[in-house]
Design a protein around this nucleic acid. Structure first.
Length: 181
DNA sequence: ACTAGGGCCTGCG
DNA sequence: CGCAGGCCCTAGT
């Protein structure tokens, strides 16, 4: 009997990407045939590109074509906190991570919730720290809005791409006041 | 304000 | 496998 499907990537997949200048710094936006599969921020073009290639080292990588550019433009709009129809997403992660990330998509702009509340929302109220871990591993920020999750005491907590970006996103969405200091 | 410990998913060895 | 560590939270000084 032959193995039908591997749960990771059955075959080397074809990815397209480009790097754009945004209000949050450089953003690398990558997509597969399925949809957007990675968004990465950075301040150096070459570093971003090599990090991307290292992370998908068994993929066939090229630059965006017309449809890829169309997806990217929607991602860019979301990065700038504009309201647009979200692009199709190719969400890759463990079962648990996907549960967390899908729940994140249900948090409207302008609001925040705590890691605790997010945990109970996916029926895993004891897995608070694991939920935070899944947020930290979110490959599609800020389209998957993990920046809307903050600590129960109101502190911003952390952000994979730096707290300044999390803060900027929340300020623009009107979720938090401009920081007094 | 600070510290300790519970809980549990992940990545790496 | 086993283990350390994390974008946490609560309770107890």
């Amino acid at each position: 009997m032959q193995k039908i499907a591997d749960r990771a990537q059955p075959m080397p997949d074809a990815l397209r990407f480009d790097i754009y200048a945004t209000s949050l710094g450089l953003a690398l936006i990558a997509a597969s045939e399925q949809g957007v599969c990675a968004i990465m921020f950075g301040d150096d073009y070459d570093c971003l590109q090599s990090e991307f290639r290292r992370r998908f080292n068994n993929a066939i990588i090229s630059h965006h074509n017309a449809s890829g550019r169309e997806l990217a433009s929607r991602v860019l709009a979301i990065i700038e906190s504009q309201t647009v129809t979200p692009p199709p997403l190719d969400i890759r992660g463990t079962q648990f991570q996907k549960r967390v990330w899908l729940a994140l998509l249900g948090i409207p702009a302008g609001s925040t919730i705590s890691y605790k509340e997010l945990a109970s929302r996916i029926e895993a109220s004891r897995s608070i720290r694991a939920v935070a871990g899944a947020c930290a591993a979110n490959p599609l920020a800020p389209v998957v809005p993990c920046h809307r999750v903050v600590r129960h005491d109101g502190a911003l907590s952390g952000y994979r791409w730096g707290l300044a970006r999390k803060q900027a996103l929340l300020e623009r969405e009107g979720a938090i006041e401009r920081f007094p200091v």
